[in-house]
Amino acid sequence: MSKLTIPQEEIMSSGHLACQGCAGALAMRYMLKVFGKKTMLAVPACCWSVIDGPWPYSAVSVPLFHTAFETAAITASGLKAGLVAQGINDVNVVAWAGDGGTFDIGFQAISGAAERNDDILYVVYDNEAYMNTGIQRSSATPYGAWTTTTPANHPKDRPKKDLVEIIAAHRVPFVATASVAYPEDLIKKFEKAKNTKGFKLIHIFAPCPTGWKMAPELSIESARLAVQTRVFPVYEVENGVHYKLNINVKNPKPVGEYLKIQGRFRHLKEDDYKVIQENVDREWELLMRKVETFK
């Protein structure tokens, strides 16, 4: 029982500016453990543009380019092109963005990079809202959630955008979901991405205690419950057609167990739980059909 299950090396330093219990910071820690020092980051406006620290500091010991909100993917592509043009072929370039920079404003540039199959890894740490600007809804905000722009008496009334399916439709080599609660699976995916040429995207479920109105110690717990309730399935798609479920949830917990620990769902009633449960069941069923059909 006494072996480390993830790499020991730390490339992200302590002293960064993430809130207590921020899973977005934890996700970066994991990624850098795998990618190591031969890595460059493109980071758009998001919590990470604060977490990394103000000038003249940085919290990661790899080069990091702060870029405009909607340009993570293309800045990474540009960096990669610039390196290759100089004959530097052994440096991995990672775009590291929030859900707003990914599902919303940066969507077009991601689609461009995916369609061209640019050789980058795109990571979205998904905290399901615009946290940097104070918890506004994004198209990754789930149905029923409170945010400052979807107040409790009129919470989000549309489901979360299905990013992975859209990226898979670009027929890119590798796209996956992952969770900070399952670091071993996440590490494996980073390794796979590191060893795959072309466009890769990993969608990481990354709870934000501040924005979810939740105690910081519940960050990992909530991420685990999202998987165990089937709210957030952990799977991957190779070349846009080969589906693989990475974490099978045979006996799912009711969605309420996930929802009730977060303040952002406090206004929901039993009826709302029912609607959400039905949505989750239907989405899971759809995914299972794909997993069985497209092996």
């Binding site: 330093s13 302590s14 002293g15 960064h16 500016l17 207590q20 990394d52 620290g53 000038w55 003249p56 500091y57 940085s58 919290a59 010991s61």
Partner: peptide, 20 residues
């Protein structure tokens, strides 16, 4: 004593967050 562009000169490791 500043670089031309905002390029970092040090690590956030100097920032002890114990007081949080």
């Amino acid at each position: 004593d500043m670089p031309e562009m905002p390029a970092s000169l040090g690590s956030m490791a100097h920032n002890k967050t114990a007081s949080w």
